[in-house]
């Protein structure tokens, strides 16, 4: 319990520091949002008026506190371009990205755990070598390329899945799932390839452990011994990598959302960057950073669930 509390404290501190960094980056970026909004022919008076309306004529610390205070109450500010409140849109987009990243993670785990375990258990045989080779190849493929190939096969040639677009799950669950398959696969398979290699090496380590020999000595067959006594102990390094991969997945989602025309955080970010809507960029980046930190926190909590040796508070 102490471990988790301490970890939560570290999480909050990191979040605070991250918010300052994100804010500082946006503040030093060249380009005046008011100038972008009004165009090159705007009068100085109008520019000043707009800057005042955006709140960017105030000192930076005040701007920062105003922004961060807003985040705590769910107020993400207003878009420089459209003038709409950012909060509701951000929430909608975040939900879409969560679906995509979640599904991709499921794909990665469901593919990598059995394949990596197989590659380790059969590492001296042909099937183990084939899995290792494929995972190496798969890890080298960028997600957007995988996406284009998958669209070519399943949407263009076979016509069994849509090539893009998004249906909310509550509107039409079947269409939602069909639309989710290809983007989740293109994002998840590449991660699966990377994860397979980590699962393989974690399982290989466990296979050499004395307690696995004890399990065999009790009369368990090799496969049962590995499943009952090996996999849980192999999970610690795999969970670590999975946590790191989620950060990569969030970034990969930015590109894959573009390929599949999905209205998630990624496409919101790209649109905002294109429109110089700096406040939106700032909000989206902050949400992504917070998401990554939350994942890291969850990974730390998961450790203590998996490995009883980490439960002692020190």
């Amino acid at each position: 319990m102490m471990v988790i509390l301490r970890r939560a404290g570290i999480f909050l501190l990191t979040l605070a520091i991250a918010s300052i960094v994100v804010f500082a980056f946006m503040a030093v970026l060249p380009g005046d949002p008011a100038q972008v909004a009004l165009g090159v022919n705007a009068t100085p008076e109008l520019l000043a008026q707009t800057r005042h309306a955006f709140g960017i004529d105030r000192p930076l610390p005040v701007q920062y506190l105003d922004w961060i205070g807003g985040l705590f109450t769910g107020d993400f500010g207003r878009s420089y371009v459209t003038g709409d409140a950012i909060g509701p849109q951000l929430l909608d987009r975040f939900e879409v990205t969560l679906w995509l990243v979640g599904a991709a993670t499921v794909v990665a785990v469901v593919v990598a755990v059995p394949l990596g375990t197989l590659a380790a258990a059969k590492h001296r045989t042909a099937s183990g070598t084939v899995v290792s080779g494929l995972s190496q190849l798969g890890a080298a493929v960028p997600a957007f390329l995988a996406g284009i190939v998958l669209v070519e096969i399943f949407a263009v040639s076979l016509r069994i899945l849509p090539s893009g677009g998004w249906t909310p799950p509550d509107a039409d669950p079947v269409a939602f799932l069909k639309g989710l398959v290809l983007p989740a696969l293109s994002l998840g398979l590449v991660q699966a390839a990377v994860l397979t290699r980590y699962v393989r090496s974690a399982v290989l380590d466990v296979l050499g452990e004395d307690y696995l020999r004890t399990a065999r000595a009790k009369g368990l067959r090799p496969t049962r011994a590995l499943i009952r006594h090996g996999l849980r102990n192999a999970a610690v390094p795999v969970v670590t990598v999975l946590g790191l991969q989620l950060a990569t997945l969030l970034i990969g989602a930015v590109v894959v959302e573009r390929v599949f025309v999905i209205p998630g955080l990624g496409s919101m970010l790209l649109d905002a960057v294109g429109g110089r809507d700096l406040i939106v960029v700032q909000d989206v980046v902050m949400v992504l950073v917070a998401a990554v930190l939350v994942v890291n926190l969850l990974v730390d909590v998961l450790y203590t669930v998996v490995d009883p040796r980490l439960r002692r508070a020190r």
């Binding site: 307690y211 009369g219 368990l220 490995d307 009883p308």
Partner: peptide, 26 residues
């Protein structure tokens, strides 16, 4: 392996050298 698994731990048992690592830590 089938026969050996049935014998191991029932008719034949073994205790190994290193007790520190021979039990499943989780």
């Amino acid at each position: 392996e089938n026969l050996l698994s049935r014998l191991r731990g029932s008719r034949l048992a073994m205790v190994f050298q290193e007790p520190m690592t021979a039990l499943n830590p989780s």
